[in-house]
Design a protein around this nucleic acid. Structure first.
Lengths: 153, 153
DNA sequence: TCACATTTAATTGTTCGCAATTGAATGTGC
DNA sequence: GCACATTCAATTGCGAACAATTAAATGTGA
């Protein structure tokens, strides 16, 4: 029993699952990023937060969370570590005392220049044309947004 | 300064990064899976381990790790939790005492039947044709394998 | 104005994920 | 046969990720 591969089992086969493809690809990206980001003193989630801040500074925690799909339980300790590394400053908003505004320090701004080489290293590791990557990215983003729509009922 | 979007900044823009697409899609999948897997009493990584074992039983930890791209630091505690839930049994191999063999319990085998409805729920949430998903999955797997090849020098 | 709901971060506890180390078992070269 | 390297799992420590709760600030309706 359960010796010969059954057609009924096909949906449960690991190799047939797109979610495992995505899950394992995310880990593979992380492993490629690690040596690059070690040079910046950042982890990958911290790098994502810095990407957000390099686009726009002095934003509440919630805005960062909405862009990265992360909540305060993840971001609060992460931001405290970035503050301990002197890359950001956390301060209560004066208009709304509930909000904590995240601003880059001069070191945080400066790190952007060191980070410019990262994307092209990733592109090289992907060993893939830009147009292929863009097409794949657009497909994945569309899928992600449909999944997130389901979660929001 | 840094007010108007600069072309030089495009590679650092969050929305341009395929890795963030993959990262955020993985989280979105996790959130869709959660309510489904709660009914099975599994987390998503535990579900992946069960998928491996439903395909082939009585395998060393290392084999599971190779299929899922996870190491013993992740798998050992996870497998202990599955054992505490009476879904697997851990035992030292008699031929090679270094190996720990993982076997399904009757409950572990039985859970497979309850899991059969999961993939179609995910498919429904994806709101996408099977052929599109397969094409996307193949593209992501190929990318993942190229990334993993870079890591292995 | 005052009770009440909402918003926002922070906190707590559990589970992953991985690097680095440890220790035991096995394989090898001489 | 014996020193040595390799393999494998377990352990430790740190950083996510998230659910659930707490607490403070703000908004709203009667």
């Amino acid at each position: 029993m359960a010796r010969k591969p059954s057609a009924a089992d096909a949906p449960l086969r690991l190799d047939n699952q797109i979610c495992f493809a995505v899950y394992s690809a995310a880990h593979a990206f992380n492993r490629v990023y690690k040596p690059l980001l070690d040079g910046l003193g950042l982890t990958y989630p911290q790098y994502l937060v810095m990407l957000v801040l390099w686009e726009r500074d002095d934003v509440p925690v919630k805005d960062i969370g909405e862009k990265l799909f992360l909540d305060s339980g993840t971001l609060t300790p992460l931001l405290k570590r970035l503050e301990a590394a002197h890359l950001v400053k956390r301060s209560r908003s004066r208009e709304d005392e509930r909000q904590v505004l995240i601003a880059l320090t001069p070191q945080g701004h400066a790190l952007k220049e060191k980070a410019r080489s990262v994307p092209q290293s990733i592109l090289a590791a992907s060993d893939c044309s830009v147009s292929e990557l863009v097409a794949m990215k657009d497909g994945i983003v569309a899928l992600r947004d449909r999944l997130n729509a389901v979660i929001g009922e």
